[in-house]
Design a binder for these strands. Structure first.
Lengths: 294, 294
DNA sequence: ATAATAGTGTCTCTTAGACACTATAAC
DNA sequence: GTTATAGTGTCTAAGAGACACTATTAT
């Protein structure tokens, strides 16, 4: 017996089924120089930072959490992420990318709330973080992620490999941290990866896990194709700036001649230079858009 | 004024807010040989196939759609995907990966339903597709995705690049298709990509778009790191099988000496061979698990 | 023998990494 | 001149692609 489509839809009651709320959580990265160097010759020290917001109300009142919010039925998840980013940072243009879904039971004490985690990369020139009122304060935290343990086992048909990471977020005197494990299990030639939040201080929800996950994803992406790094820099930049950005993200040094060769086709020289340091002025470059998007 | 956490949560009513249903849509790929070759010497022809289900009820009754279902509050999105995969194909182990979220307004006539799209890669030996009853029939469709148009424009600060693809799904006499555009817009050095379903025949919902998107993601992943291809093959395989799988997915030929060199560290020779064709027997290989997961 | 696939050896060209070197501004 | 950074040239080793070649089986 066929049911008529029209009739079916009229009788379909979506509210009969259990539904979650959908939230976006934005892991917004930027690169900022913390302070002027005391030595006039040296370049200022730069850091990868992530935007956090101090919660003005429960749950996790007074703790720090990722910016984000609930999705509305009139927008796509991606549009919601864009709206949140605009609200929090005033950034219109950014690298914006869905990184994963976090839906563990009990991750939010308010109920069944599924988080769509986004990575956003913005350059600090466009940023204007919302002023901290009484209720919600936004701050950029310096990010550090270090592997603190590595165990690996091997059995008959498979094995496991557990990496434990410590995430630290610093801003002024505030120090937040989380310990997150990455469990790689393989059995009969099939692997699965699972992230678990072991412990966390000062960070609300499972956001320590989300930040760790997204940061690792950022590193993977930069390792395999560095084009997104440009989204962390202003429109014009020196090659040292660019190299430094790679080094900060991947936490390893590059040899500048090789680095220059590798990225040369993605940049175009401008006629400007950056003077002022006690050393040879650096040429300013911009992206070679042709090579970027093909 | 601080609100007590306990009190806040007791008064929090999640049902006051508008909530969507969350569905998983599974793009399940496998590689199958269609039929024996007439020429006893030749190897049988293999194809990339995707699992589709004929809908027994509205919406899109009698049309074909991706397997999937609604997420329950007692499981994570990933667990829901695993459950669906098991229900549809009986596969316990598979490469399973979230590829994207589809949340356009009106994508499902029943209301606000957000789809979490997963890629699943299984080898056809473990598969036992659910028997087709009256209501729901499951079939494997041969997949073909071809670029049918490419336009690119360049302006002052940016430009656009629109690729149009035709997806075709074939099974016996059934031919389904969809036309999907991929719009790459770049402006002021920032790019965005958007997929649009232009037209579609025989495929329900926006699933033509989802399949196109996930297939492109599969190709990208295989291009950059072919390890997931092994999940489409049985535990032991010949190097020709493996090469053929790469060629089917990437739609381009490889030179076998070079291919062998490239994948040599990911495979281990077994003591068995595959005889029967009118040609030199092929050694059977299995994965070198050590090299896979590190 | 033949046809088809299985598998090896080697040449070239490109690219990543290492490193020695030159250049230039502020002090 | 000194110092720190900017930028160039070249050597080497590893890898990707091309291709000529040998090996083995059912008919």
């Amino acid at each position: 017996m066929k049911i008529k489509e029209q009739e079916y839809l009229e009788n379909y009651d979506i509210t009969k089924y259990e539904r979650p709320s959908i939230a976006t959580d934005m892991v917004v990265f930027t690169i900022v120089e913390d302070k002027e160097e005391s030595n006039y010759r040296k370049l200022s020290d730069k850091h990868l930072k992530v935007l956090m917001i101090q919660r003005g109300q429960p749950p996790f009142q007074n703790m720090w959490a990722l910016p984000g919010g609930f999705c509305k039925s009139t927008e796509t998840v991606y549009e919601a992420a864009k709206r949140e980013l605009k609200e929090e940072t005033n950034a219109d243009r950014a690298h914006l990318e869905l990184c994963g879904v976090f839906s563990d039971q009990g991750r939010d004490p308010r109920g069944w709330i599924i988080s769509q985690a986004f990575m956003a990369l913005i350059n600090n020139e466009v940023v204007r973080v919302r002023a901290g009122g009484d209720a919600w304060e936004a701050k950029w935290f310096r990010v550090s992620l270090k592997k603190i343990q590595e165990t690996s086992e091997k059995g008959e048909n498979g094995g496991s490999c557990i990496n434990t990471y410590r995430l630290e977020l610093n801003c002024d005197e505030i120090c937040l941290w989380a310990v997150v494990s990455e469990e790689l299990l393989y059995e009969d030639y099939h692997a699965s990866v699972e992230y678990k939040l072991i412990d966390s201080e000062g960070i609300g929800f499972d956001h320590g896990k989300i930040i760790t996950y997204v940061l690792k994803k950022l590193r993977d992406k930069v390792e395999e194709d560095g084009k997104i790094v440009f989204d962390l820099l202003p429109e014009v930049f020196t090659l040292s700036d660019l190299q430094k950005a790679f080094e900060i993200i991947l936490d390893k040094p590059f040899l500048s001649p090789n680095f220059r060769r590798k990225i040369s086709k993605y940049v175009i020289e401008t006629e400007h230079t950056l003077t002022g340091g006690g050393h040879r002025p650096a040429k300013l470059f911009r992206r070679n858009v042709e090579e970027f998007y093909r």
